[in-house]
Amino acid sequence: MHLGHDLDEKFPHRHTYSAPATERPDGTRRALRIGLGGPVGSGKTATVAALCRTLRTEVSIAVVTNDIYTREDADFLLREAILPPERIKAVETGACPHTAIRDDISANLEAVEDLEESIGSLDLILVESGGDNLTATFSKGLVDNQIFIIDVAGGDDIPRKGGPGVTTADLLVVNKTDLAPYVGSDVDAMAHDARTQRGDLPVAFTSLKDEGGVKPVADWVRERLADWSAGPA
């Protein structure tokens, strides 16, 4: 990322300890790291699972989960046999996922590096946050891009209310659009509010229940991967 290179130019001999470093110790380009955050129940784990299913034949993927209370998210991914166990690592967060993804990223960085080291040639690492509040965002020291996932059932006023996740995430996903008629949410109003809050930043509407429902997110990830591998190594 550009931030990393700015730093590298200013401090050419200084070892960097977090995401801005874009190279592995052996000089090859490290995996792209994408964070997925959002409120409880919005479909983060389901999105991670769907992304893994869609992309696993194209790229080498691993997942880091940040569970709140259990290893359930990691166990879900294991149970669904979406990825082999050695590609999933669970980070414990002491009841505060936002601390582990933003304020003290040391455990997540360790998990990411352990995966790179043990798997070898990873292209993509998805870092999933446990469900948290609307202000929870990923540190730039941990991920290169972040996706914020909300759903129509959580209230159609969430985009209007804004907050760092909604306004600054590289991609905002509004999930469960199939439920909108049942919960009385106005998807068009959500799209309008999101545009107002986010300017040119993209918004994707998904219904993971549908065949290929994750496609808009997967396409966006493919673009990020293309940019990443085209970037200066």
Binding site: E92, C96, T99, A100, I105, S106, A107
Partner: peptide, 11 residues
């Protein structure tokens, strides 16, 4: 306590 060395996840 905010020193980012992982202590927050331990009791």
């Amino acid at each position: 306590g905010r020193f980012p060395a992982g202590g927050h996840a331990h009791s």
